[in-house]
Structure formats: structure tokens, C-alpha cells
Simulated scan of single mutants.
Amino acid sequence: MTIDELRKSGLILFEAVVGSRAYGLATASSDTDIRGIFYLPVEDYLSGQYIAQVANASNDEVYYELGRFVELLSKSNPNILELLASPADCIVYQDPIMEQFKMQDFITREAAMTFAQYAMVQVRKAKGLNKKINNPMDRERKSLLDFCFVIAGHGSLSLRDWLSNRYWKQENCGLAKIEHAKGMYALYYDQIQTLGYKGVVATLESNEVSYSSIPKEETLCAYLFVNHDAYSSYCKAYNEYFRWVSERNEARFEGTMNHGQGYDAKNMMHTIRLLQQAKEILSKSELQIRRPNREELLCIKSGAYSYDELFVWSQELFQEVQELCLHSLLPVAPDQVKLRLQLVQMRKQLYRIKL
């Protein structure tokens, strides 16, 4: 099912422009994001052909099935609460049935904390991006050999250097496991390649060392330590880094690089916005979508602050939200029973069911 099919079938109950245009933070380069609510044809719903969400290819337009919308609403999901609280000039269409949802029923302590907690997730994302930007990884992937060290006196020497000093090859090495010594191996060398040693690794892409059958009369050359934990951590970081490179929004990344602060400034702008909205829920009993401090937030987006300054600011706001929540007289969470009955009545009305 596509969005066009929903529209042609008259199944859309609500749609609104969201994101930067709703916040009043749009600039010349801003996209137009649309979110909406629909209900399924009665045949699909009753036959179990349930579709929770429909989106376009770019994910700029996302529509939630009524039941999914109510489920997320019951959990005080920030995106869903913002959709329900859309400014009048951002609402593209609203079926009268949607008027049954009153925003005041969802102004709760849980709502404030979901906004605040979502904001802190953005802080961690920004920190992770900060680390990726300032610690780029080489495209050439390291081998397990780069995590191998030969015990030398009271210290150690990298296996590559140890072999190079002797003009030896890793392919001529033979390893034997040492019992009760994790990561430690006895290393032997076959200069004329007659003993069938398998090398330290079979190939440079190998994730494990190779074991060889060592004749009893062979002389031990060295003890080898393989830091498997460090190699595993490196592989995870390498995969995460280059997955990020392949999936990142290049235009947004260029903006991050241009302001020179080494973090995603748009991400941190939304962090402060979310925390300020959380405070407003608790102090004013309202969810204000259109932001009154456009210039301040766009200043953050431009990279005018350092990551450390914004981190401290976000921590202070989060503590304020926690303190306000502790003394708030707002309901703890939405009335789940009322919301469930509301959904039942809406489905009866939409499907003209009489029970």
C-alpha cells in the first residue's frame, strides 16, 4: 500500500507538515517532512492484513495506522505527541474524528521525561559522531597480525617488527597453543618450508591464528601473545565507522565539517529544543511546537558553540527537568483505559460496526 493509494481511497485521517517548518526553524535548504494517520480498509483490518506504517522512499512522508498511532501515543512518544500538537498552519487535513484526541490528556510527567530522555540520546549520538570525525579510520583494514606481539625480555615487540628484523616470513611460522594461557602461543620457524607449518594466519583476512603440528625435536623461537580482545574491538569499530561513512547524509556532514566544531550541530540544536520543550510541559502544562527562540537555536545549528558547552548546557537542562518532574502535579502518564476505549469507539465509527 502506498501513500497515493491511501489518499485516493480516502483513508487518511490526519496529515501535517512537521519538523523544522513546524518548529519555525526552516531555512532555505530545509526539506518538507509530512506525517499523518490513516486507517485500513475494513477487509484488510478484519482479515489480519495489518500495516502499521506507510512511507515514501525518502521517508520524508510517514503515515501511521490509527492503532499504531494510539500505541505510540500511549507511550508518550515525542514524535507522535508533536504530530498531535501540530500548529494550525501546519495541518494539511484533519478528519473530524481526530478531534476526539485532546492534547491536554497527554500533558503528563511521562511526556516530559520521554522528551528529555530522547534529547539525551541525541547527546550520545553527537558524542559518537564527534569521536568519528576527530578519529578517522584508515580505509585499509588491519590484520590480526597487527595485534600479535612477541615476548622480549621484560617487554614485547610487534610480530611484524620481530619477523622483519630476522628477514622471516609469517607464512613459515608454526604455532602451538599453550594450555591455561589465554592468547599465548609457542612460535616455531621453518626456514626451508619442509615441516608444513601453516603460518601465524592462513590469510591476511583470517580472524583466528593457525595451529601447526610441531615435531618434538624442533626448537622454540619465541612466545607469541595475540590480543584477540583488541582485534575484536577494532573490527567492531571499523565496521561501525565505515557503515557510518556509507550511510551518512553528505550534505549534513559537509555542514558539520564546515563549522569546524567536530560534532553534528543540527543534532545538538534538537537536543536543546527537546529539553526546553520538556521544561515547558512541566512548567506551563503545554507542548509548544513553534519555537520562540528561533535565533538561539539556529545559532546552535551554525556551530557557534563548542560541543563541551552544549554538553554542559544539556546536562543542566536535564537536571532542571528532573527537578520539575519530581514536584509536578501533572498526571504520571496518559489514561490507558480511556485511550483504549477511545480507539474501540473510533474503529466502530470508521467501520460502521454496531455491537
Score class of each variant (00 low, 15 high):
residue 219 T to F: 10
residue 32 T to I: 15
residue 100 Q to C: 04
residue 253 F to M: 11
residue 258 N to F: 05
residue 23 Y to M: 03
residue 69 F to M: 02
residue 264 D to H: 04
residue 259 H to D: 06
residue 161 D to S: 14
residue 9 S to D: 05
residue 8 K to M: 04
residue 339 L to P: 06
residue 56 N to V: 09
residue 318 F to S: 13
residue 225 F to I: 01
residue 288 Q to W: 03
residue 325 C to E: 15
residue 103 M to H: 07
residue 267 N to D: 02
residue 178 I to T: 08
residue 348 K to M: 08
residue 293 N to Q: 05
residue 12 I to H: 05
residue 58 S to L: 11
residue 290 R to E: 10
residue 169 K to T: 03
residue 324 L to E: 13
residue 342 Q to T: 08
residue 295 E to C: 01
residue 276 Q to V: 04
residue 69 F to E: 01
residue 76 S to P: 09
residue 46 L to C: 12
residue 109 R to P: 12
residue 71 E to G: 09
residue 238 Y to G: 02
residue 186 A to K: 12
residue 233 S to P: 00
residue 92 V to T: 09
residue 61 E to P: 01
residue 264 D to S: 08
residue 96 P to C: 06
residue 215 P to T: 04
residue 85 A to I: 02
residue 212 S to A: 11
residue 91 I to T: 03
residue 325 C to M: 11
residue 289 I to N: 09
residue 85 A to Y: 09
residue 136 P to E: 06
residue 63 Y to L: 11
residue 251 A to I: 12
residue 240 E to I: 08
residue 94 Q to N: 09
residue 35 R to K: 15
residue 254 E to P: 03
residue 288 Q to Y: 00
residue 75 K to G: 05
residue 161 D to E: 13
residue 328 S to A: 15
residue 199 G to S: 05
residue 22 A to E: 09
residue 64 Y to T: 01
residue 58 S to R: 10
residue 181 A to S: 02
residue 72 L to Y: 12
residue 228 H to D: 11
residue 203 T to Y: 09
residue 306 S to K: 09
residue 173 C to G: 14
residue 29 S to A: 15
residue 111 A to E: 01
residue 234 Y to E: 08
residue 322 Q to I: 07
residue 233 S to A: 14
residue 183 G to E: 01
residue 23 Y to C: 06
residue 122 Q to L: 14
residue 95 D to T: 07
residue 240 E to D: 15
residue 40 L to P: 02
residue 64 Y to A: 03
residue 304 A to C: 06
residue 249 N to C: 04
residue 287 L to T: 14
residue 84 L to H: 11
residue 24 G to I: 04
residue 66 L to Y: 08
residue 327 H to V: 14
residue 315 Q to N: 12
residue 45 Y to I: 05
residue 10 G to M: 07
residue 119 A to T: 07
residue 253 F to G: 00
residue 227 N to P: 00
residue 310 L to F: 12
